[in-house]
Design a protein around this nucleic acid. Sequence first.
DNA 1: CTGTATCCCTATTGATACTG
DNA 2: CAGTATCAATAGGGATACAG
Lengths: 128, 128
Amino acid sequence: MSHRHTDVTDQVSNEACPLTEVLDHVAGKWSIGILVAAAQGPVRFTELERTITGISRRMLTLNLRKLERDGLLVRTVHPTVPPRVEYRLTPMAQELRATLSGLVGWAERHRADITTARATYDAATTST
Amino acid sequence: MSHRHTDVTDQVSNEACPLTEVLDHVAGKWSIGILVAAAQGPVRFTELERTITGISRRMLTLNLRKLERDGLLVRTVHPTVPPRVEYRLTPMAQELRATLSGLVGWAERHRADITTARATYDAATTST
DNA sequence: CTGTATCCCTATTGATACTG
DNA sequence: CAGTATCAATAGGGATACAG
């Protein structure tokens, strides 16, 4: 064994893989957006609904519950007459958000490259 | 306006948001797994198919194409009699992978916390 | 206001068979 | 080996109406 294509097998195979773990909590279409929106401070349900733009009430609720269950969001209900519910990030989620900024940085640095790559690929694919 | 719930509106709203950009390239169920697997060096199609475990041939192909189109993977075809195709990360993707390790670190640090949070949440939800 | 419950539609994915 | 094509199953997500 020294064929120089090093053994890859143990990196992705099992379900305990940290990468998979991350994805399960973050990979959703809305999760990260919610985390970012909620990071600004305690945020109310309706606020999020307006902020996230394309999200439906249903999806917002589902994602909020998931994030809460994973310990990333804290849900606080103020038992006032018009119910007031606020969401805020846990310290763990704040940490995640900080980490996420690395991704954002990467995206910003390479947005143009990606656009170019796509154009090139499409050109090569579309035409003969 | 000074209700201390700072204006969130400009963070997630538009489609040009870097976060959205990142997600489009990375959020897929398999994308990151593929990138990690391919990072070890030139990898062949079948190797990936075995490595990624749960992935179907179809999904592997689709994701490979997407990643290639985005300029994250380079596909090299060796015109030998049994075709030999190898995939490797572009520098841009290597950079992404480095960034990703931050996420992996976060996941590793908090895996236990998440498990606990879920158990707590489920206990509080299931009972009563 | 803050959700929950339904219905329904579409996109994603798996399984399978076939090809260069 | 490395895909592509096709079909069927499913889950994700939107719209809407209703409830605490």
